[in-house]
Design a protein around this nucleic acid. Sequence first.
DNA 1: TGTTACATGGACTAAATAGTCCAAGTTCGG
DNA 2: CCGAACTTGGACTATTTAGTCCATGTAACA
Lengths: 201, 201
Amino acid sequence: MSTTPRTARGRATRERIVRAATDLITQAGVADTSLDDVRDRAQVSKSQLYLYFPDREALLREVAGSTCEMVLEGQEEALHGFDTITGIERYLDALVDLQVTQETPTGCPIATLAGQLADRDERTRLILADGLARWEQGLREGLKAMAQRGELRADADPCLLANQTLAILQGGLLLAHVRRDPGQMRIAADTVLAVVKAALA
Amino acid sequence: MSTTPRTARGRATRERIVRAATDLITQAGVADTSLDDVRDRAQVSKSQLYLYFPDREALLREVAGSTCEMVLEGQEEALHGFDTITGIERYLDALVDLQVTQETPTGCPIATLAGQLADRDERTRLILADGLARWEQGLREGLKAMAQRGELRADADPCLLANQTLAILQGGLLLAHVRRDPGQMRIAADTVLAVVKAALA
DNA sequence: TGTTACATGGACTAAATAGTCCAAGTTCGG
DNA sequence: CCGAACTTGGACTATTTAGTCCATGTAACA
C-alpha cells in the first residue's frame, strides 16, 4: 500500500527518490534504469520506494512531471523576456547555449521522455503534453504582449506564432541530439527569429 | 556464430525477421519488443534468429536501417517533386495526410527510434542520423534546382533552407505525436511553406 | 545421391528485475 | 516519554528475457 508522506522528512525522502529517478532516466533512459539503480542513487531502502509509490509506472509518471518542471524552471526567467525582439534573442541564445555547453547535446528531456513513454502510458503522455503546453503558453504570453503594444502586424496571430516557435525549437533540439551537433540548435533559433521578425509591424 | 544467408531462401528469411522486428518496434517500442515477439511474428525458430544475427543489438541496428528505408521510400516520389512551389505543396500535403490518416499520429519513426537508441549505441545513432541526412539531401536537391533556375533570391541558401525545413517538419511530427493532434503537422507544413516562399525570387 | 545451407523446436542456463514481506531500529513532535 | 511516522535491509518469489545447444528434418542442387 502506498502512502503520501505526512512529515517534512517523509516529503524530502519522496522528493529525493523522484529526483534520483529523474536524473538517472534523463541520462540513461527509461529502459536502462532499474528500481535498484534508483534505490542506490537516492540512498533509500527498497521498502521506501514501495511505501511512496504503488509501482514503477507511478514513479515514472512522477519523473515525467519532474522532468517538465526541470525544463520549465531552467528557462523561466529567459522566457519571461520573450516579449521584445532583444528579449527573444536573449531567450534563443540561452537555449542554444544550453546545447553548446553540454559535452554532448541532449535535446529536450521532455521530448526524449515522450519518445519512450508517450505510447506506453496515456497518463504519462498527458503530463508531458502539459509540460509542452506550458512552455508554449510562456511563448504565447510574450507574443501577445507584443501584439497588444502594436508591435506585431495586424494579421499576425500570437497563438500561431507561439506554436510555430515551439515546433521549430523542438525540431532543432531533436536534430542537435541525433546529430550530436549544437549547430542545429543555432539554425533553429535563427529560424524562429526570422519567423517572428516577419510578423513585426 | 552468425552467418550471412547464401541463398535466396536464406535472404528472404533474414529479411522477414528484420521486417517483423521493425513492425513490432515501430508500434510498441524497443523496450516492449522481445526476441520471442519477433520470433512469433516472423514465424521463425529462435535458432534462425541467432543464425543471422549475433545478438539483439545487431538486430536493432538492422531495424534502424530498415526504418530509415521505410520512411524514405514512403516519400520518394513526393520528395522528387520538391523543386517547384506546387510540388513542395504537394509534398507537404502528403506528409500531413500521413499523420491525419493514421488512427493516431505516430510522428517520425526515425525520430522515435532515435529517442530510444541514440544514446545507447553509437552505431545505431549514426544509421539514424544518416537516414535524416538522406531525407535532408532530397529536400536540398529540389531547392538547389530551384536556385539554379533562378527561382530563389540570390541571398537564399538552399542548404540552409533544407536544414530548416527538416527541423520544422521534425518539430511538427514530434508535437503531432505527443499531442495526438495531426493539426500540429499542418501548422509545421504551413511554416515550411512560408519560409520557402520568403526565399523566392 | 550426397552435400550444403536452411529450418525446426524445445530444453536449458544465467541474469536481471519487479514486487512482497517482515522484523527491528530511529526520529521527533505532542 | 509515548506513539506515529519513518527507515533499514535483506530474504524471498515470480517472471521475463537473452543467449546457448543439439538432435532432427527438409530443400535443392551438383
